[in-house]
Design a protein around this nucleic acid. Sequence first.
DNA 1: AATGAATGAGGGTTCATTCAT
DNA 2: TATGAATGAACCCTCATTCAT
Lengths: 237, 237, 237, 237
Amino acid sequence: MTDKNRPKTRKDRIMDAALRIFAEKGFQNATITEISKEASVSEATIYEYFGTKEDLLFAIPEKISNEVFKKSVEVLPYIKGVEGWIRSILFSYIQLYQSNPHYSALVLLQLMPNKRFRQTPAHAAIRLSSHGLLDCIKAGIEDGTFKKGSNPYLIRSMLMGTIEHLFIHWHMQGMPKKEPSIMDMLDPLLNIIFDGIRTKKEESGTTLYLKLEDANAFGKLLQKKGGGHPPKRKTKK
Amino acid sequence: MTDKNRPKTRKDRIMDAALRIFAEKGFQNATITEISKEASVSEATIYEYFGTKEDLLFAIPEKISNEVFKKSVEVLPYIKGVEGWIRSILFSYIQLYQSNPHYSALVLLQLMPNKRFRQTPAHAAIRLSSHGLLDCIKAGIEDGTFKKGSNPYLIRSMLMGTIEHLFIHWHMQGMPKKEPSIMDMLDPLLNIIFDGIRTKKEESGTTLYLKLEDANAFGKLLQKKGGGHPPKRKTKK
Amino acid sequence: MTDKNRPKTRKDRIMDAALRIFAEKGFQNATITEISKEASVSEATIYEYFGTKEDLLFAIPEKISNEVFKKSVEVLPYIKGVEGWIRSILFSYIQLYQSNPHYSALVLLQLMPNKRFRQTPAHAAIRLSSHGLLDCIKAGIEDGTFKKGSNPYLIRSMLMGTIEHLFIHWHMQGMPKKEPSIMDMLDPLLNIIFDGIRTKKEESGTTLYLKLEDANAFGKLLQKKGGGHPPKRKTKK
Amino acid sequence: MTDKNRPKTRKDRIMDAALRIFAEKGFQNATITEISKEASVSEATIYEYFGTKEDLLFAIPEKISNEVFKKSVEVLPYIKGVEGWIRSILFSYIQLYQSNPHYSALVLLQLMPNKRFRQTPAHAAIRLSSHGLLDCIKAGIEDGTFKKGSNPYLIRSMLMGTIEHLFIHWHMQGMPKKEPSIMDMLDPLLNIIFDGIRTKKEESGTTLYLKLEDANAFGKLLQKKGGGHPPKRKTKK
DNA sequence: AATGAATGAGGGTTCATTCAT
DNA sequence: TATGAATGAACCCTCATTCAT
């Protein structure tokens, strides 16, 4: 984030305007003219900085995802346990999307359907973050936190899909103030999923048979990794 | 579905062509000219049947969702237990989306971001189906299948969000043949979620018990809600 | 005029609808579709009767002017004096235009600017009538009613121009109910013009004299031209 | 009027081309493509200057009437007597229409029938001028030049209607060179009308007196109204 | 670096008209 | 005779993009 005291550069003004307008009207319905007016620059100036309308579109998430997702990686060392890591990553996501609704609308509604977006540095950043999440899940399976046999891709889709779905619908309803907020739903979401995939260590008797597989093989693997209990979250509020 | 022997009507040819082209190139990049060529009709003929390019867009899901979702409701009475109902609804979704990839691309990538789509009969059909799913979840909470205190909206978002996420990414990767298919992921998905939200009465004989529930115990519980029929939605207008 | 008891023929229904719609929306903004709906026939039927949209336009005044102007000629023999004849012709005009506002709007606002209208039988009828008026004026000059040296073309333009101007402005104001009506202005108009061009034999008792003329003097003068008959037009072509 | 030496601006070139083409083919039959070619600009450039084809149409008389009618008001102080004022106003009209036949064709044949034209600044200018004429006539009635009881609206319609009629027919005949020209008809027209409405003070020695009036008597009468200045119009807003 | 001015390229839409039935 | 269905042919207008200044 650049110096907050300095007046915004032309480039930033353009990107801010573009973010707002792309998010509100959609990429195709937004016009360079409108963006240039909102940014108080001439249309030609936009082309000085961005070769193409689509380049401008792609430049926005590139800047933001670089800023944000890297930070989310930085905090991981401070957190213990896969479940904590996963929670931390998703927390970043939700915070980003919630604090910057234009950005989430842009990414979820305008960029996801755009095929060329996948070849973009911005998308690479998102993939990276998404890949990090996958790695956490895989680690959780390996270390016995999660059941052996769990499909980590499915789990990632459940996590990301749920969050994106919540945001998409929030946007489609016109972003109402809501209780509970999407952030409030993070822990319930994780509880359900973790409950569904967590290895139940002392399922005295009963679950035994079914769980057995889960309980054995994984147990050993995990002992190597040091018994890694996920840090308990106190459900807030 | 009309007589399969008869040659397709012009109107159907237009909608088929439009579905394919809208799905592949996006609504804005598709041109009436191209659709008319693909459908072997003149451009003017398209305007005979559909007043507007957008009308044509919206006409496609209207036809399909009416056909499909009604059928998915019809089978519910044959199924016992909330979990079965939920599985059945999601099965319909996935089958529709998987067997008609153009359609799922259209709905998930073109229509969802379109604000006007929400005021469309087609969207109403989708909402109806989505509301049915919610009712099933609520019924499950009420009858004790699922934990009291579960947030049914969150659960719905998890189910739908996961499925949509899987499809969106499948599309964005160019719809590769994959093992496991998305349909293959339905049961794992349900297992995780149901495991996470199911009331654990006595933890024993689990897997067997699961099947038992479907067949017997849940049936009884549900009879309280009216003889095992799917929860009635009050048709809203 | 066809039998008033019989239901209108298709052709008449089409022409009635066209008159109304052409007059209200203008020729170019009227559509065959709209006319066909108003007339309760198919579009193709219109082309059975009228080869072209413009043919339909031109057919309307042809029918009406044939009906009306011939009648206006028939009454001339019953009237004495050029001034009476002139008044009678103009009276017909105003009556036609006033009693059939759609028709006057059509002729004055749609047809006059149309160059091809001049080659039309309908226009020929109008020219005929206009020529009759000119003949009357010329007769008046010849027989001494009007000053020698008067320009009959100018006088005709004054008469017709004034009336058309009044109607055009009436239409452009949305045809308000007005006092005095345009018909009420006929005599003031004629008074001014006749006053301006009448031979002043002895300048005294003017206004009184005016009334006398109408009744007597002019009658005699005109008898020179053949017993009070309106001037013959050589039917051209 | 801008520097005559400089090459015409694009905007002027467009308006010139449009005037010619609208006048010759009519508004609806003229195409932007043709105008753009005639003006040697691209079609898009036309839309830079004029938002709409109709805007372009309306821009033409706005420019011209502002230029011309204001000038016609400026000369009034130099002229003595209502009759002189009236003559002067009509002289301007005829001169404008005669020297710029495209313009008169446009106004009389294309714009008059256009309902939206009435809400246009250009039409307001025309109305203003027309209202000035009416004021002169009213002044003439008030100061005794014209007969009490004359209908000033009728008189205005006679003056304007005659002139417009003459021009319309001149256009419809293909604008032939003619003797007498329409300008030549101004004085005969005024003679007839003024003769018809002028107060005949002492009906003897008349015609002689008429000439005298022009030169002297009227001057005195008009001085009552404030030194021979043209009647003030209350600028309406 | 910034822009005012200009435009190429194309898209959606309209409608008079036709023709097989 | 009457028409439902189909379309060819345009036209207006938009806008991303360029370039001389």
